[in-house]
């Protein structure tokens, strides 16, 4: 199954993310974001960061998750490429992300994402499939 696709958005970048369940949706959303930020092809590395986040609802939690990863990318200079959601409720998540220091990989960087926005954000879930559209400010 396709993990995500970009949809046309005039000023910013819009992605439609897919997942078989909310956990996979959150993982694929993070992958989509870093796939836009950097060239992830054949990237490897074993720097691991663990996350525990809370938010008022699942949409806000998704934004919090993406923004937390962005914050870590910019301040710790880590390109993340693998994501594992260990626990996910409507308001809380536990996750692990694996990445590699930007260091000599600076030439892999493509796009500066400023933030994941709440604009029009709505997670759609039905049997065996989840979907969400996210607009990133770039």
């Amino acid at each position: 199954m396709k993990r995500y696709e970009q949809f046309p958005h005039t000023a910013d970048i819009g992605v439609r993310v897919y997942g078989k369940d909310p956990k996979e949706l959150f993982e694929n959303a993070a992958f989509a974001m870093f796939d836009i930020i950097a060239d992830l092809e054949n990237l490897s590395g074993d720097t691991v960061e663990d996350f525990e986040l809370e938010a008022p609802d699942r949409e806000a939690l998704l934004v919090a998750w993406l923004d937390e990863l962005l914050y870590n990318f910019y301040t710790k200079q880590l390109i993340f490429y693998k994501f594992q959601i260990e626990e996910l409720t409507g308001t809380r998540l536990k996750a692990r992300a694996t990445g590699r220091p930007v260091g000599a990989n600076r030439n892999r960087l493509k796009t500066e994402i400023k933030a994941a926005t709440y604009s029009g954000l709505k997670i759609k879930a039905s049997d065996g499939a989840c979907e969400v559209e996210i607009i990133f400010d770039v």
């Binding site: 008022p56 806000a60 934004v63 914050y71 910019y74 933030a115 709440y118 604009s119 029009g120």
Partner: peptide, 29 residues
């Protein structure tokens, strides 16, 4: 990055304000 982070954090905070001040917006952004 400083401005992006300020907007990010206060946008989250303001979502909580919607209920507190009884404000109706069609888009949480």
């Amino acid at each position: 990055g400083l401005g992006y982070q300020v907007c990010d954090e206060y946008s989250k905070e303001m979502i909580r304000c919607l209920a507190k001040y009884n404000i109706n917006v069609p888009d949480r952004q």
